[in-house]
Amino acid sequence: MIRFSRASVTYPGGVHALRELDLEIGAGEMVVVVGLSGAGKSTLIRAINGLVPLTEGEVTVEGRSVTRATPRELREIRSRIGMIFQTFNLVKRTTVLNNVLMGRLHATPTWRALLSRYRPEDVEIAMQALERVGIVDKAYVRASNLSGGQQQRVGIARALAQEPRIILADEPVASLDPPTSHVVMRDLQRINRELGITTIVNLHFLDLARVYGERIVGLRGGRLVYDGTGAQADERVFREIYGRSLTADDVLEASPAA
């Protein structure tokens, strides 16, 4: 469903973020991408929805080329791909509901969205998305009044409101404390299992990756260096991915929550 073929991204400064990557991700998979910062995790995820264009090779999503899409086609491809961010990327001044309704923009006529007159059925979809992450009671609260964990769940609800086929999560727990990290990761896991949404998550904590990654993809210097199950990924594998011995900074906590 997602296919990278000899995909490379070279940034204007000459940094090679991805080098000739070949990767296939099937429908309904839960994939965790691991690697040090700068290994190309963010670039890989943003290449899937075209926020970062490839400099060589091709990415296809559900058989459609992201690389060769016109702006209109690209917006249509993006409408089926929800995205979750490390820093949540919410409009903090406005309500939780308004933030989640951003996920309905692709289905809303421009004049309606400009006047903020969303259709009742779109508002209902947004409310259901909030229900799924358990914060529908906060719908009319300003986003800035929520805790970090709650803000990230608004981010998840916004992605769900798109009714997506794929969810991309770029370091979704890096700004959260350990217990909240597990809550958010379990939310993502549940969404993947119950709704069958293909989910790709960037993580740098190896314990989280092992617990939640059915499949783990390891990046180092923009190259694919590991592709296997979470169960197979032992310390030796992570040392190989990180290119150094492991330290306490590589795990979220000494003993992961049950």
Partner: peptide, 20 residues
Amino acid sequence: GPMEAARAAGANRALTIRTG
């Protein structure tokens, strides 16, 4: 950040500005 979120959700330029 919110602009990136709107773009990722498939919004065009006008709606990215309006909502983000």
